[in-house]
């Protein structure tokens, strides 16, 4: 198989599309930035791509609620296409604002079969502040996420004001944890979970329930996370490379490589 083609959505305030496209290219994919308007008016068909990526940014300025207006447009203008992507088992990633979009669309953690039913949310940080800060993350052992295969720990920046994960119910959280769909959590540097409540800050930067930083669908193909893996693919992006030395690559790159390899190996 040739290099998988990745549609990186742009437009309406999305702003991390260039570095996300670059990350997929570094990982061996062939990324194209695709304007949402071109998808809606039929210039571009999402089904012609092998992966869909919804980058971070401030789609529609985070107005009403982050990701809401963009999710609303996707649902009403491209809903059928999105459901077909799910049927065709096309991997989807949403990062930061893209994660908010997928959660508000109902594609994460997702229903069986896929539908536009929102079951969780991402809302105002407990600090009520937008913050740019680096976080330690660990993946859930045995998660079905194809994106996190072989990854145990990550060090990535968060850059958001509305990243607090709240599940629709305690039962839902339990079942997501059982199915390892709560695939990524905020941790302390030493690898232990942050304390509950306000003392968990800043390791848990937003007050997320159960320190959840990312979710995946039950089939592991759809993945969303608040931290920015595309902001740590180069060694010079690490905030302390001047102290610790340059690594070969940034922690986030493996996520994109995983998706590309998943498709290349069939």
């Amino acid at each position: 198989m040739t290099a998988p083609r990745i549609a990186v959505l742009t437009g309406y305030g999305i702003n991390s599309d260039a570095e996300l496209a670059h990350s997929f290219n570094l990982a061996g994919g062939k990324a194209e930035r695709v304007h949402l308007h071109d998808c809606i008016d039929g210039h571009v068909r999402l089904e012609d791509f092998d992966i869909l990526a919804v980058p971070g940014g401030f789609s529609f300025g985070d107005h009403i609620a982050s990701g809401k207006v963009f999710a609303n447009r996707l649902r009403y203008k491209l809903g059928d296409q999105l459901l077909r992507l799910r049927e065709k088992k096309i991997p989807i990633i949403g990062i930061c604002n893209g994660f908010q979009v997928l959660v508000k669309l109902g594609l994460l953690p997702g229903t069986e079969p896929a539908s536009f039913t929102q079951t969780c949310t991402l809302t105002y940080n407990d600090s009520s502040r937008y913050e740019d800060r680096w976080c330690y993350l660990r993946t859930e052992t045995g998660t079905p996420s194809i994106w996190l295969k072989g990854i145990e720990r990550l060090y990535l920046p968060v850059r958001h004001g509305e990243g607090k994960f709240i599940p629709g119910s305690a039962e839902l959280l339990k079942s997501l944890e059982a199915s390892k769909q709560t695939c990524l959590r905020y941790y302390l540097e030493d690898g232990s979970l942050p304390p509950e409540g306000p003392d968990g800050f800043p390791a848990n930067p937003n007050g997320s329930t159960a320190h959840v930083a990312g979710l995946c669908s039950s089939d592991g193909l759809v993945f969303g996370l608040m931290p920015h893996p595309e902001a740590h693919v180069l060694a010079t992006q690490h905030p302390r490379w001047h102290r610790d030395g340059l690594k070969i690559e940034g922690d986030g790159l493996q996520i994109f490589r995983n998706a590309v390899n998943y498709l290349l190996r069939g």
Binding site: N15, G57, R129, Y130, E131, D132, T236, Q237
Partner: peptide, 12 residues
């Protein structure tokens, strides 16, 4: 810290 100082992925 409330400024996004890393978007575009180029900070050194």
């Amino acid at each position: 810290r409330q400024y996004d100082h890393e978007v575009q992925g180029q900070s050194v």
